[in-house]
Design a protein around this nucleic acid. Structure first.
Lengths: 179, 179
DNA sequence: AGGGACATGTAATTAGTTACATGATTGT
DNA sequence: ACAATCATGTAACTAATTACATGTCCCT
């Protein structure tokens, strides 16, 4: 999804500054499966304002830098709904980890084990953070997406845990392909 | 993962032309979780050849266009192993579908249902194709990655099937937010 | 004294996609 | 007759990341 639409999506949940949009795009529900950086958000907000899809209000803060708070206009909401109604592109699961594992015969066993263990820790941490989320008061869409994410990470984690030792054995009892 | 490394990865399983590399990057095991296009593969192969990481052999074919068959050199294999030993970046699951669902209160129920049903069909098809794969003779890495993919898609499918009707109900018995 | 959160923005770089250009053969 | 597969490559375009630039406040 392009950064402009992502900004509109965040703003549909309430007004926010560029900095706050970045934060929202780093955590559930909207940001769980999207990525962006400041370098794309600020220009996007400028373009959206020029198109009249958002309005900007300067907010002076004591003890903090001033901020520009953006809010969705009716036109902006219309554009967002338009985009949302288009058939979404297929999901893309990009994984360098799996590419490495698919070529694990080229690596030594210790390295492969390290990568799998690190991945297990990563999924555990992600699940823990998701489990700690307070969803009381969240709308149905938010809870649905949250549940989807948990189901995926749980499946990944269970697979890695269940298969790791057997897989490592198969690579050869000693580190056969050590460099 | 950058296209150059991806090309080296494919070539580690046997020599291939640019066209064949593209095909390999569209299907398991290596291509299951990666993407590329011709426009990035051909220049990448040119650069790899210039660096001495691959060698190229022209092959004349009757009834088919000539092709350039690339093969990994020792230096190329070394570079690949080097890259493979680096800690892989975290996996990225990018999903416009989930973004849309997280904002489903902005959409009408029929559209949301259509998106979910299409996604279910997509995962079913993917699983069917993976189930039809012949893995006899495949190495441990290939089987591991294949199993990982199946576990993920199965979890996604089960979640969507189990939650769909309840979710749709929650959005409101009639299409409340129809545009 | 150092790092992190807050806060905005630009510029340089990198990388990728899409479209164009060409053309035979095979299957429907 | 049309689409798909095989086959390579370039050019234009789009988009995003990274680094740079600046500065305060708060916590340890």
């Amino acid at each position: 999804m392009d950064t402009k639409t992502l900004c509109l999506a965040v703003l549909s949940r309430g007004e926010a500054s560029g900095y706050e949009i970045k934060k929202a795009l780093e955590e559930p529900p909207i940001g769980a499966f999207q990525e962006t950086s400041f370098g794309s958000i600020y220009p996007a907000l400028g373009k959206l304002a020029a198109e009249g899809l958002v309005v900007c209000r300067q907010e002076t803060q004591a003890k903090r830098p001033d901020k520009k708070v953006y809010a969705l206009t009716e036109k902006g909401k219309g554009r967002l709904v338009e985009r949302l109604r288009e058939t979404p592109d297929p999901d893309r699961y990009r994984s360098d980890f799996l590419l490495v594992l698919s070529l694990s015969p080229l690596l030594d066993r210790a390295t492969v084990k390290r990568f799998i263990d690190e991945r297990i820790a990563l999924f555990e941490e992600k699940l823990e953070r998701m489990g700690a989320c307070d969803l009381s008061g969240a709308d149905a869409g938010t809870r649905f997406v949250h549940g989807f994410g948990q189901a995926l990470y749980r499946a990944a984690l269970e697979y890695l845990r269940a298969q790791e030792s057997g897989f490592l054995e198969e690579l050869g009892p000693r580190d056969a392909a050590a460099e």
